[in-house]
């Protein structure tokens, strides 16, 4: 295998669920330890990984320099440490750079998970410790980025995320990628079908019993139960809820004030319609 195999998504769209599934699946469907086994599908933007392959500390660089550096580092990782990685990077060219952080030639293939932005808004609010209104604002912010250091170090380097709509279209409309788009809602409605597709795309065991076993091992209750018992190291420090909070679809109908849901539709409606979110 050469090149990066990406699990890409806007934040809070089901990425960790897929990673948990894959972590179990790569171990023959065994139960996983959230705080150890998810590392099988590493975070591409992890500061130590990026520092190592860049030969520089990103903490000593300014955002435009990081934007110039990241595509070069992505190519090095693709060559020297290829494999499965998760990312929240958009496939857009950040200010100051000439290409996206993960250029197409560094990517072997990419899975892109998309989720109804009204549910994303709720999940993101809990995760980042935002109000729902701030969450909706951020999702419309074309210059939204993650990993930016202010007064302390972030465990990830900078990622140019942009708005929810721009993020989704940057990946799903990329003509130069071997891409599998998945909707979170479809995975929930028929997990066996969706995850079988995922396994086939990633050239993993896609037989029904194997996929079923791994799905069982990373069921929502298994993951949430483990978080209750041992904690989850990827939970954000300002978070106001467990990382594995609800794991459902359509929660926005009761949890999101109608005016916020309307604002989201006004701002993201065109792309929502392309994905069938009505």
């Amino acid at each position: 295998m050469s090149g990066l195999r990406l699990i890409a998504s806007y934040p809070k769209s089901g990425n960790t669920w897929l990673r948990a599934f894959l972590a179990s699946h790569l171990r023959g469907g065994q139960p996983i330890d959230l705080n150890a086994d998810l590392a099988r599908i590493g975070t591409l933007t992890s500061r130590s990984l990026q520092d190592l392959h860049a030969g520089l500390e990103h903490a000593d660089l300014m955002p435009p320099e990081v934007a110039l550096l990241r595509p070069l580092t992505s190519r090095r990782i693709a060559q020297e440490q290829p494999g499965l990685y998760k990312t929240h990077d958009s496939n857009l060219v950040p200010p100051g750079a000439g290409e996206p952080a993960i250029p197409a030639d560094a990517i072997d293939r990419a899975v892109y998970i998309v989720r109804d932005p009204r549910d994303v808004a709720i999940s993101a609010a809990h995760h980042f410790g935002w109000s729902l209104a701030v969450s909706v604002d951020r999702m419309a912010d074309a210059s939204f980025r993650l990993g930016h250091s202010s007064t302390r170090l972030n465990v990830n380097v900078e990622q140019w995320v942009s708005s929810w709509s721009a993020h989704v279209e940057s990946w799903l409309d990329a003509g130069d990628l071997h891409l599998l788009p998945l909707r979170y809602e479809d995975l929930l409605a028929d997990p066996l079908e969706g995850f079988t597709q995922l396994c086939r795309f990633l050239e993993l065991d896609d037989t029904r019993p194997a996929v079923g076993r791994s799905l069982e091992a990373c069921s929502f209750s298994a993951l949430a139960g483990q978080e209750t018992r041992t904690g989850f190291r990827e939970r954000y420090h300002a978070s106001t809820a467990p990382f594995f909070r609800a794991g459902g679809a359509g929660g926005w109908r009761t949890a999101l004030a109608p005016e916020l849901a309307e604002r989201l539709v006004a701002e993201q409606g065109r792309v929502m319609a392309r994905l069938g979110y009505r």
Partner: peptide, 20 residues
């Protein structure tokens, strides 16, 4: 190129470029 911002030549000289 030894790393993205660094080159080395056969005399052992190194060139580091930090954009800003």
């Amino acid at each position: 190129a030894i790393s993205p911002f660094l080159q080395i030549d056969s005399t052992g000289a190194g060139l580091l470029q930090v954009p800003m």
